[in-house]
Computed example of a mutant assay.
Amino acid sequence: MSPLLRTTVVSLLAVYLTWSIVNELRAGSLKSRGMVIDAKENPGGFYAIQFCKACFVSFAFAALLHALGLIGDPYIWTRQTFSSLAPR
């Protein structure tokens, strides 16, 4: 996959996730795979999911900065840091 296509796909997914985070924080609940997780009933699960989404959005922002030539490659850093997760 070309770097431009990869960055575009990741950025579009990040825009969707950002929109999703904002709406879920306003509503105080999220729906995933038919389950409804309410922030009042299960705050740990609710905010853990929001944190994971925010991490992906941050990674997409780093990929966008890399595409503009402002920082190093976040994919290489991720592969080096989490080498056990990288495909061989």
Rank of each mutant, 00 (worst) to 15 (best):
M1D: 00
M1C: 01
S2C: 09
S2I: 09
S2L: 06
P3K: 05
L5H: 07
L5N: 08
R6P: 07
R6Q: 07
R6N: 06
T7A: 12
T8E: 08
V10G: 03
V10S: 06
L12G: 12
A14D: 03
A14H: 03
V15L: 14
V15K: 06
V15Q: 02
Y16C: 09
Y16G: 11
Y16V: 12
Y16W: 12
L17R: 08
T18K: 10
T18S: 13
T18R: 08
W19S: 13
W19V: 13
W19H: 12
W19R: 13
I21E: 00
E24F: 11
L25C: 15
A27E: 15
A27Q: 14
A27G: 00
G28P: 02
G28C: 05
S29A: 15
S29D: 13
L30R: 00
K31P: 07
R33E: 11
R33I: 09
R33A: 12
G34N: 10
G34L: 08
M35H: 12
M35Q: 14
M35P: 06
I37K: 00
I37N: 08
I37A: 02
D38Q: 15
A39I: 14
E41Q: 15
E41F: 14
G45A: 09
Y47T: 11
Y47A: 10
A48P: 00
A48K: 11
I49D: 14
I49Y: 13
Q50H: 05
F51L: 15
F51P: 04
F51C: 15
C52R: 14
K53N: 13
K53E: 13
K53V: 11
A54E: 10
A54P: 11
A54K: 09
C55K: 09
F56N: 12
F56I: 15
F56V: 13
F56T: 11
V57L: 08
V57T: 00
S58E: 02
S58R: 07
F59S: 00
A60W: 01
A62M: 11
A63C: 08
A63Y: 00
L64G: 07
L64W: 04
L65W: 03
L65C: 05
L65K: 04
L65S: 06
L65Q: 01
L65D: 03
A67Q: 03
L68G: 06
G69L: 01
G69F: 04
L70A: 02
L70M: 00
L70K: 01
I71R: 05
G72L: 01
G72Q: 02
D73E: 04
D73N: 10
D73I: 00
D73K: 03
P74Q: 05
P74W: 01
P74T: 01
Y75T: 01
I76A: 03
I76S: 04
W77Q: 04
T78M: 06
R79K: 03
R79N: 01
Q80L: 02
T81E: 09
T81P: 03
T81N: 10
S83I: 00
S83E: 01
S84V: 09
S84I: 07
L85N: 05
A86I: 00
A86W: 03
P87G: 02
P87N: 02
R88S: 07
